[in-house]
Amino acid sequence: MRENPLGRTTVRVSELAFGAAGIGNLFTEVSDDQAAQAVAAAWDAGVRYFDTAPHYGLGLSERRLGAALRERPRDAYVLSTKVGRILEPTPGAHGDDLADGFAVPAAHRRRWDFSAEGVRRSIEDSLNRLGLDRIDIAYLHDPDDHAEQALDQAYPELERLRAEGILGAIGVGMNQAELPARFVRDTDIDAVLLAGRYSLLDQRGLAELLPLAAERGVGVVVGGVFNSGLLADPKPGATFDYATAPGELIDRALQLKAVCERHGVPLRAAALRFPFGHPAVASVLVGTRSAAEAVDAAEMLNHRIPQALWAELRERGLLPIGVPTPGEVE
């Protein structure tokens, strides 16, 4: 699988990234064996970039990912995790974490913390769960309501950790494009993980963030290319942006699917390849919870897409005229 430099850094990421929320029991349980098999299948398919976070399963994702990668050469893969939520033990707690989306016991609670002390503690805790001594990329995770603390305290602490060699690169990961653009303007951030805002259905990232990232040499990893499922399988009841998709969006996704099918291309393949039309994009991240999903994502990313498909999408008004599209992949 092709690897790309992450912006101006020395970090190189595979074009397909393994999103590890699923192996943190996102919505439903996954066994330890299934999690290990998912990581192994992704590795066999050429994936060398793996993304996790303390938030995912209250640390379960980090523990499982670290275990699955333990026998792999450390210099052969890139791993990212995130800061901003501290996990505090809750002795004697009952129930589960499904209110926050994860089918795990509520043995910890999350505490927002973008202070310098909180960031350093978060990284130390993540290293312990992962069983590693360094992290390739650390993202500020969803600082939407904590922008000033993240800019004034968390980011400088990540710079110190990077200078100490504990981190390779600093990023911000969000479901919006506006605040990441501020980080790109006001800091020397290395990367942006942009979820759901640069897809076949939603190009809000193109308004400011992506051109600014390209200008500043900031690498972009695009997540949420299926927009919560609508572009994976468009049908009534499908979800978009974590909610039931409105009828007009379902109709648009079905039109996209019809054009793709005329060119012999699965919609999933076009959705995965589309972000690479922009020069700032280094990788696409797909949430993966099974070996079958890992194999499918790699096959879809490598599917040949003719230029005529992108041309027809423009002609039919399903992509704006000015949106860049990828070159042909053989």
Rank of each mutant, 00 (worst) to 15 (best):
N4S: 06
G7S: 02
R8D: 06
E15P: 10
N25G: 13
T28Y: 15
E29N: 15
E29S: 14
S31Y: 09
V39S: 05
A45K: 14
R48G: 03
R48E: 06
D51Q: 08
P54L: 08
P54K: 12
L58S: 03
S61T: 02
S61N: 00
R64S: 03
A67D: 01
A67K: 01
A68E: 00
A76G: 03
V78D: 01
K82C: 04
K82V: 02
G84L: 03
R85W: 12
I86F: 13
T90V: 14
A93S: 13
H94D: 13
D97W: 15
A103R: 05
V104K: 05
H108T: 14
H108Y: 15
R109S: 11
R111M: 09
W112N: 15
D113L: 06
D113V: 06
A116Q: 06
E117Y: 10
V119I: 08
V119A: 02
R120G: 00
S122P: 09
S122V: 09
E124A: 13
E124Y: 09
D125K: 05
D125W: 10
S126Q: 06
N128W: 15
R129Q: 13
L130I: 05
D133T: 01
D136G: 04
H141W: 10
D142K: 04
H146F: 13
L151W: 08
Y155K: 11
E157G: 03
L158F: 05
R162A: 03
I166L: 05
G168W: 06
G173H: 02
N175P: 01
E178K: 09
L179A: 04
A181V: 05
F183G: 00
T187F: 01
A191W: 01
A191E: 04
G196K: 06
L201C: 03
R204M: 11
A207C: 02
E208P: 12
L212V: 10
A213Y: 04
A214N: 12
E215V: 10
R216S: 05
V222S: 09
V222K: 03
V225L: 01
L230Q: 03
P234Y: 11
K235A: 13
K235F: 15
P236M: 12
G237L: 09
T239S: 14
D241M: 05
P246M: 06
E248T: 12
A253V: 08
A258W: 08
A258F: 12
V259G: 02
C260M: 00
R268E: 06
A271T: 04
L272I: 03
R273N: 11
R273H: 09
F276H: 03
F276D: 03
G277L: 11
H278E: 07
H278T: 09
A282L: 12
S283D: 07
S283W: 00
V284S: 01
L285S: 00
L285T: 00
A291G: 07
A292K: 12
A294K: 06
V295N: 05
E299Q: 15
E299Y: 15
N302C: 15
I305F: 06
P306Q: 01
A308M: 11
W310F: 11
A311W: 14
R314P: 14
V323M: 14
T325I: 12
T325F: 10
E328V: 15
E328C: 10
V329Y: 15
E330M: 14
